[in-house]
Design a protein around this nucleic acid. Structure first.
Lengths: 229, 229
DNA sequence: GTCTATAGTGCGATAGAC
DNA sequence: GTCTATCGCACTATAGAC
């Protein structure tokens, strides 16, 4: 195995990847809907709310999560909650949309090499590291996508298709430059995505094994690499 | 690419893989809970019920599906529905448990070769073909697993872990016989499972491309095979 | 800005007619 | 065996006190 383009620690030090930071963005883009004057207070409480939503969604799903559950988990009354959003559905869409933006921006910022092979490795690492830092955000996207209104589902290209297109582009360039020998770039991109998804959808599985995100990144790079030669 | 061990058509002709057949098993194993005397009537109506459950679960999730939805979709009244199960939760568990049994039996029956390489190919094909025949059953297992009561989640080894163990066993034997050159059998088995899962979790993606289940099976076998040499 | 209390709705489940 | 009608409850959302 070649060396990884960057370690998890290096990745984290390059940018601020926390749920709190995402919530800060969330407050800024939804300033009009949130009836709280002091921005910092809004950020802190929304952080608690979003944490609770992600946690409860993981165990019972967003639609089965009641606002009473949310109230209990956040120690905010139902009345108080409604100062941070106007409906349960709006809360869902706020989290979904903001998360999508934050995640994709980070992915783009970390896959910058011009050499396709290196760029592919950077993308794989960035995706795995990001999902390692925010696992519940990623599984929320995946598991709750069906709760998006039909309009949003059509208009917004899902995060998944975005990242898959991202990988395909790299593969196509590598193929053009004769660096990669592969038949179907679309299928290969899809396979890469499936391997990355496994990391955050099956955390319970990997957590019991002696395996960290860097080892898994090496594995994926090798596993994919064997098909490009 | 080598020839596939068997085609989709051959696979289907070897055994009866339909939702109706699963429902027949469901009636037989839950004869005491179902208040319908004529078995065939019970099978037919449960078939409609299960179809509706899978369909509604796919669009909005099982917990968001109301029994009024189910009543409308099946053209059975709420009162009639309760002759086929005693509670919404029981309905869920009946489907889950029966489906798991049927699926695993079929997988085992179709991966019988003693040669590890052929057996691996048979397993991949059987899994893909089975999920092609019953896509909604498979995605139901995956998406709704969290609705299982904690007891069942602990006691029952999930379908997923079962199949993954299945693949790992084959890989280990191939490694022992020096037919496969691979480092980590557990990680490789996990990767295979991820690629198979993609087929039924992302049907919308593949359906728009000129791709059938046999072509995908060839792709997976090659993709995995490149890592065993 | 957060609380309690409650309005209004839709849920799972059941009883009793046919 | 299936229907209609309805019970009691938990839900989302809001109004008004503090």
């Amino acid at each position: 195995m070649d060396r990884l383009p960057f370690t998890y620690k290096e990745f984290l030090s390059k940018q601020t990847i926390t749920l709190e930071e995402i919530c800060r963005g969330l407050v800024k883009t939804n300033r009009d809907r949130i009836n709280i004057k002091k921005e910092e207070r809004a950020v802190q409480n929304l952080h608690r709310i979003v944490q609770a939503v992600l946690s409860l969604s993981q165990t019972k799903g967003f639609s089965a999560m009641s606002l009473r559950d949310l109230s209990q988990e956040t120690d905010l009354s139902m009345g108080a909650l409604y100062n941070y959003f106007n409906s349960k559905e709006e809360l869902f869409q706020m989290i979904y949309t903001q998360g999508r933006t934050s995640v994709f921006d980070t992915l783009e910022a970390n896959a910058v090499a011009s050499d396709p092979e290196l760029r592919l490795q950077q993308s794989i690492c960035a995706h795995l590291y990001l999902s390692e830092a925010l696992p519940r955000v990623f599984s929320f996207f995946f598991m709750e996508a069906r709760n998006l209104p039909a309009q949003l589902q059509k208009n917004i290209i899902s995060l998944e298709q975005l990242t898959e297109g991202f990988f395909e582009e790299i593969l196509q360039e590598g193929k053009k430059k004769k660096q990669f020998a592969l038949e179907d770039t679309q299928l290969t991109a899809s396979a890469i995505k499936a391997l990355l998804q496994d990391w955050y959808l099956k955390r319970y599985k990997f957590s019991t094994r002696r395996l960290n995100v860097e080892k898994y990144a090496s594995f994926v790079i090798d596993f994919v690499g064997a098909n490009l030669k």
